[in-house]
Write a protein that binds this DNA or RNA. Structure first.
Lengths: 235, 235
DNA sequence: AGTTAGCAACTTGTATACATGTTGGTTGGC
DNA sequence: GCCAACCAACATGTATACAAGTTGCTAACT
């Protein structure tokens, strides 16, 4: 899914898709904003056909919706939905942890992760948005190590949809610190084959992050909406 | 997802999508078959645009794949993938069972299900393909009762993709009988709030069905492929 | 006969023209 | 001044024309 048609030069549809997705994630398109296929086409220098393809894809992923013959709309953030996505994510990752502990030998990946998330080496740590990406890949690697590709696929889809709020997690410095410790503890439990312990730590880790995100999200949206209004006035 | 644009008269794209999906599920399009957008368009009396929309949707659902500028192909049945989908389905439904037992009161839906799946009334039983649909809705209702819409959504997607093999389950008469008993037992455990018991019964129920399906699928595909070859010769 | 270069037919990707329904401003009536 | 009917601009849905790449056959050459 990450690869456009077999590494062929990215299609227009792919480019438009990525651009729109980023616009949405960076709040350049505020939830609730309406726009037309033509607008997007002229702005991104593409015809309506690839634009439509990109939009339908974003629709299936839950980011936009189409109003019959009256334009597209960025789907408002549904907090209940975010909570439900977190629940689903926890369910999947817990299952992954149990699967991993049922394996005959520890996957190579986990040893690599253990080096990366070593809490005794605070020197080589990433910061800011880099941590967000690393955290994502940590959880993604866990799923991959469990060996069920369909679970990986669904988990990735969830990750995509949660990213819009999840990046806010690491705007608080203590969360970076905590993330390193929590990841290390989870990996240690996995290494010792303590499935239940690992699952519980993982659950707490995700719920903590979820709580932090919940607290930050609301104000950010308000800020963005205000900035957006000023833009409209000055324009 | 089941509703085309708000019950507006079904679009051409929707019609093509349903037709193609049925063709695939009914093995009128054999896994591995290649075809072009133009073919489908003339056969179903539609232009390429809605055909493409339908195909991209089927692609995202994993039923077909596109070969760059050289046609579309019905994705070969991937048995490993089916196993993984079953695993994912079990994970979701087990979680649902635990959620249901955590509710303060038994959902109305479950009482309705208990009436439907009463094993003491073998008279009013459905048979054949009707049981397949009822079985599907049983598991779907369980997910809905648990209250997480995202889990319901993913579960429905999995159900769609497993349907192609799952309908084979009820071609054996004893499976119909067993399904009634197993469903009743699960509902009884849920009624008594025995989460662990219900989860275990549910898991066994699904695995039994999975095993039956696994046994039947291979031969059926061979049959269909043979019938297909005869068609080609006579044509 | 075997092999390879090239070309023609066919494929998807993209752009655009047309069909049809929605919406919001405008205008006429009260 | 207010309201309702209407209509023009604009939205998506669909059809079609054009661009660009793939494939497999053909034919010429070794």
């Amino acid at each position: 899914m990450a690869t456009p048609n077999q590494r062929r030069k990215a299609s227009v549809a792919e480019r438009v898709y990525e651009a729109l997705k980023e616009d949405i994630f960076e709040f350049r398109l505020i939830p609730g904003d309406k726009f037309s296929e033509g607008d997007v086409g002229t702005r991104l220098n593409a015809s309506r056909t690839p634009v439509r393809e990109a939009l339908y894809r974003l629709q299936r992923e839950g980011h936009v919706e189409v109003l019959f013959r009256s334009g597209w709309k960025v789907k408002p953030l549904d907090f209940q939905q975010m909570e439900e996505l977190y629940e689903l994510r926890i369910t999947l990752e817990r299952e992954a942890v149990h699967k991993i502990c049922g394996l005959t030998e520890e996957p190579e990946t986990l040893r690599a992760l253990a080096l990366l998330w070593n809490p005794d080496q605070p020197s080589g740590r990433a910061s800011g948005s880099a941590v967000r990406a690393l955290d994502e890949s940590f959880h993604c690697e866990l799923m991959i190590a469990a060996g069920n590709r369909e679970m990986v696929r669904v988990h990735r889809e969830i990750t995509d949809r949660l990213r819009i709020v999840r990046r806010l997690d690491f705007t608080r410095d203590n969360r970076v610190e905590a993330t390193y410790e929590e990841h290390a503890a989870i990996l240690e439990a996995l290494h010792q084959g303590l499935a239940h312990d690992a699952a519980e730590r993982l659950t707490r880790h995700i719920r903590t992050s979820q709580k932090a995100v919940r607290e930050i999200t609301m104000e950010r949206i308000k800020e963005a909406a205000q900035a957006h209004r000023s833009d409209s006035q000055s324009a």
